[in-house]
């Protein structure tokens, strides 16, 4: 069985690169697909736009979703994914800089599975990436498709 992909929705290339490195250094070898904005993320999830032809039922093992994104923000992306029967159970972890109450409340209200704050300290980020990978890729049982 081919390994499922990790969808990383992140507009900041540095953050995307660091996340990729953090996952890699923790021996998480799943393919990491990076979407640069909300529209691209939805295109990938629903197999539209430049990802036309992709099967939406092939959900990513985990989606790491930033909130502050160009075009469509992360919360809107989350809302649309949860509104669709095909994707409403796919695991989504919000990975963002914000610790504002409003973002936390809205994130959970719209049905994120977890909310992780990006630490400035890269050492801490490495720990976070490791735990995320271990939990969502190994420990957690994804919903049956």
């Amino acid at each position: 069985m081919a390994q499922k992909v990790i969808l990383l929705v992140e507009d900041n290339p540095d953050d995307a690169e660091l996340t990729r490195r953090a996952l890699k250094s923790n021996n998480i070898s799943n393919q990491v697909v990076v979407a640069r904005d909300g529209v691209e993320a939805l295109d990938y999830v629903f197999g539209t736009g430049k990802h036309v032809g992709r099967d939406p039922l092939e959900t990513p093992a985990i989606t790491l979703l930033d909130l502050k994104l160009p075009k469509l923000d992360g919360l809107e992306v989350l809302r649309r994914i949860r509104a669709d029967e095909r994707t409403k159970f796919m695991p989504i972890v919000i990975l963002t800089s914000s610790k504002e109450d409003q973002d936390l409340i809205n994130g959970y209200r719209l049905g994120c599975n977890s909310y992780v704050r990006k630490p400035v300290d890269f050492d801490e980020f490495l720990v976070a990436a490791k735990q995320l990978g271990l939990y969502w890729l190994l420990l957690n049982e994804p919903p049956p498709m």
Binding site: N12, D14, L18, R21, L67, K68, S97, S98, V120, F125
Partner: peptide
């Protein structure tokens, strides 16, 4: 501030570690 000011710091710290 919470979102944008921390992003460059993460890059500075992260790539230093790299």
């Amino acid at each position: 501030v919470s979102h944008d000011l921390r992003a460059p710091l993460r890059s500075i710290d992260g790539f230093s570690r790299v």
